[in-house]
Amino acid sequence: MEQSSVLTLQKPTVEDGAAMWELAETSTLDSNSVYKYIMMCEYFDETCIVAREGNEVVGFITAFIPPKQPDTLFVWQVGVAESQRGKGLALDLLERLIERDVCRDVRYVEATVTPSNKASQSLFKKLARSQGTACNISDCFGEELFPGDNHEEEKTFRIGPIKG
């Protein structure tokens, strides 16, 4: 019987940026530049998290606390490797992230999600249930804001209050 490596959840380093980008590129996530991931690891490492199996990045969250909403953690992307899907890793990453000291004043978690992204919708609803709070969904960015015909509208998922 094969023994799997233990997963470690921790702050990312700039060296993780390329692996995070590769994980995003092999998934259904919106495409961003490698630079975006490196920058998030450098300037927002306190509000981002990676999961490693051995030396391999198998999951990540990029997030930040918006300057105009210091009580909110905005989740930009959640990426999980195919090998880890269905194991609860995304929820574990979110819960570990909101436990960090930098999030001590955070009362809400927000993300924008397209109507077709059922996995993310399910994740944020699970987070609300695990925190014993509400998940409110509202309109955010209409599809008319995006160039071309390839982007759906984005709905805001607002979970909270948490840590009440």
Rank of each mutant, 00 (worst) to 15 (best):
K126I: 03
T26G: 12
L9N: 05
D149I: 10
F64G: 10
Q131R: 12
L123T: 02
F146E: 01
D30R: 11
A134W: 13
G86P: 04
M20R: 14
V34D: 12
E95F: 09
P66F: 11
S83P: 03
Y108T: 01
A24D: 11
A111F: 03
K118A: 05
T28Q: 08
G88K: 00
T8W: 09
K125L: 12
T8L: 14
T112L: 00
G142Q: 09
V57N: 10
L91R: 02
D92T: 15
D139W: 14
T72Q: 04
D16W: 03
I98V: 12
F141T: 07
E25H: 12
E2D: 13
I65Y: 10
Q69H: 09
Q121G: 10
G160D: 06
L123E: 02
Y108S: 04
Q3T: 14
C48V: 04
A24Q: 09
G88I: 05
V14L: 15
V106E: 00
E99V: 03
A51F: 10
V106W: 00
E2M: 12
S120V: 06
L9F: 14
E143H: 08
P115C: 04
L91V: 00
E143V: 05
V109G: 00
G54Y: 08
P161N: 08
L9T: 10
I159P: 04
L7A: 07
D149R: 05
R100A: 06
E110Q: 12
E2A: 11
V6P: 13
L7C: 07
E82F: 09
E152Y: 06
D105K: 08
E15V: 14
R100D: 02
D45G: 14
V75L: 00
G59W: 00
S138I: 13
T62C: 08
G17A: 01
S27N: 10
R104G: 03
T156K: 11
E46N: 15
G164E: 13
E95S: 09
T112K: 01
V34K: 13
Q121Y: 11
E144L: 13
G164P: 11
F141G: 02
P67G: 07
V14R: 15
K155Y: 14
C103V: 01
V78A: 05
F157D: 08
V6F: 13
D45R: 14
M39W: 15
V109Y: 04
E143M: 11
T62S: 08
S122R: 03
E154S: 06
C41K: 03
R85N: 04
T47S: 14
L145G: 09
L145N: 10
T114H: 00
T72L: 00
D149V: 07
S5A: 15
P70G: 04
V75H: 01
S5M: 13
R52Y: 07
M20C: 15
Q77A: 08
Q131F: 07
F124H: 00
V102N: 06
D30T: 14
G148H: 05
E22Q: 13
I61D: 06
M39N: 12
